[in-house]
Structures are given as structure tokens and as C-alpha cells.
């Protein structure tokens, strides 16, 4: 099977993944991968980035088994550029389209990162129990969600001040940004995963793990592509007229 994943909830990224449906995790190969470093140039770079994953997108696109897009949460304009891209590609190529919460990409990275003992042996994932992943929501807030050690979503996604999170391991760029506040509420922040952003590659790995657990793409519990804005538009219904005099 071959899937295209896109995530623009923070950086702009896209990945082409290949795997055998009977053993997705072990047979996974990355056919192509693209990710920016910055979080502000989605409109320019995303389309050339997606195109670069294919030898000929016009021919290879319709042969895909699915397009999976990160549905946030994340800054709205960037987020929409990825979802608009994914929806349109899936429409033109007539392939199945799914969404996946972008924070699951971070949870997958935590799940994939080993914790080492003093002797250097890997002791399992870096998360010792439930953990939180957080990204920058601007306005001194973070987008965050809580996962089990097995990277199952337990709670969230939420948006709010970092002080809403307490007494837990926190990973992701939101953790690095608000390390001091998080430590004051009893959280642990590890330098190794304190600056990671959701990417299409990690999102794809999260989707593959779900497919592996569920036995098929259709049963993997993927979402539709409704964006997770979590915030209203900020628009205010105007009050009484201001006096000009």
C-alpha cells in the first residue's frame, strides 16, 4: 500500500510511505519525505514539496491508497493550506481521504524515542507513563493533548495556557517554549523532545501504527478532514454605535 501524508499544523511537510498491509510497521519504507524548518512559508513551499515526492504525480497520484492529512490543532492559515491541498489532491485523484490529529504525530515521536539506562541499553520509550504533547498556539498558549504510554489518545486536544498542564512529562515544541512554567506546575520537560514539531512523516507513522493495530486502513479510526480550530474566529458582534463627536 502507498499513502501520501501531509501536515501543515506547524511546519509544512509531506511524506510518501509504502508498506505491506499484513505487517505495516515492519515493512514500512519512506519513499519520499519533505519538511520545512520554519512555520510561515506553507503557501510557497508545500506544492513543490509534494510534487518532489513523485516521479510523475499525475500518474502515481491516482494509484495511491489514501491521502492522510494532519487536521491540527495549529495556526489556522497554515493548517488550512495543508487541508485544502489534501482535499483537492484526493478529489482529483479520486483516492480515499482521511484526517488525523496533528498532535498524534508528536505522540508517535515520543513513542518512537527510546529511554536509555546508565549502561546505554534502551529501556523502552522515553515516556514512563501517561504524557502530554504540546505545540505553540501563540498568544502565550499551547495546543496540547494527553496520551498513554502506548500513545493512545486519553484527553484533548485542548488550547490554553501551559499552566493548565501539571505533574506529567511534557514533550514537543510547546514544552521547550514554556519549560519554566511547566516545571513550576510539576511537569518534566526533556531537552531531547522539547523542540519537535508535528511532521507528515511522524503523522504517517502514527497512521501506520493505527492500521497495524486495527488490521486495516478502513478500521484504523482515522478522522475526516474537519480542521481542529479549537478557537472561535475572534469576531465580535458590534455593540452600540460609537459616537463620532
Amino acid at each position: 500500500m502507498r499513502i501520501l501524508t501531509i501536515d501543515t499544523s506547524a511546519v509544512a511537510s509531506a511524506t510518501l510511505l509504502n508498506f505491506e498491509p499484513n505487517d505495516p510497521v515492519r515493512t514500512l519504507s519512506v519513499v519520499g519525505n519533505f519538511a520545512t524548518q520554519d512555520t510561515r512559508s506553507h503557501a510557497e513551499v508545500l506544492a513543490p514539496g509534494v510534487k518532489s515526492l513523485f516521479t510523475d504525480a499525475v500518474i502515481e497520484g491516482p494509484a495511491l491508497d489514501a491521502v492522510v492529512v494532519g487536521v491540527g490543532p495549529g495556526p489556522f492559515t497554515g493548517l488550512r493550506s495543508g487541508i485544502a491541498m489534501a482535499r483537492t489532491l484526493a478529489f482529483v485523484w479520486d483516492v480515499p481521504l482521511y484526517g488525523l490529529m496533528s498532535l498524534e504525530a508528536l505522540a508517535q515521536q515520543v513513542f518512537d524515542t527510546p529511554r536509555h539506562g546508565l549502561d546505554g541499553r534502551a529501556l523502552g520509550p522515553v515516556a514512563m507513563g501517561d504524557f502530554v504533547v504540546a505545540t505553540d498556539a501563540r498568544r502565550k498558549e499551547v495546543y496540547w493533548a494527553r496520551f498513554s504510554a502506548a500513545a493512545q489518545l486519553m484527553d484533548g486536544p485542548h488550547v490554553g495556557p501551559p499552566t493548565d498542564i501539571s505533574d506529567i512529562q511534557v514533550f514537543g515544541a510547546g514544552a521547550g517554549l514554556y519549560r519554566e512554567q511547566l516545571e513550576q506546575t510539576g511537569c518534566e520537560v526533556y531537552s531531547v523532545l522539547a523542540d519537535v514539531q508535528p511532521t507528515a512523516l511522524a503523522l504517517g507513522r502514527a497512521a501506520i501504527r493505527r492500521i497495524s493495530v486495527a488490521g486495516s486502513l478502513e478500521a484504523a479510526g482515522l478522522l475526516d478532514t474537519t480542521p481542529l480550530y479549537l478557537r472561535e474566529s475572534d469576531a465580535k458582534v458590534p455593540g452600540p454605535r460609537k459616537r463620532a463627536l
Binding site: 506544492a47 504525480a57 489556522f76 488550512r80 493550506s81 485544502a84 491541498m85 483537492t88
Partner: peptide, 20 residues
């Protein structure tokens, strides 16, 4: 409007790359 333009432009780019 910047955010509004971004949606049409992203979709148009997807159309162009998907169809060639």
C-alpha cells in the same frame, strides 16, 4: 484578504500538480 487568498491558492496549486 491574506488568509482567504491562501485557501484558493493552495487548492489551485493542488489542482495543478495533481493534473499536470
Amino acid at each position: 484578504l491574506a488568509g482567504a487568498l491562501m485557501v484558493g491558492v493552495s487548492a489551485a496549486k493542488a489542482l495543478a500538480l495533481a493534473t499536470g
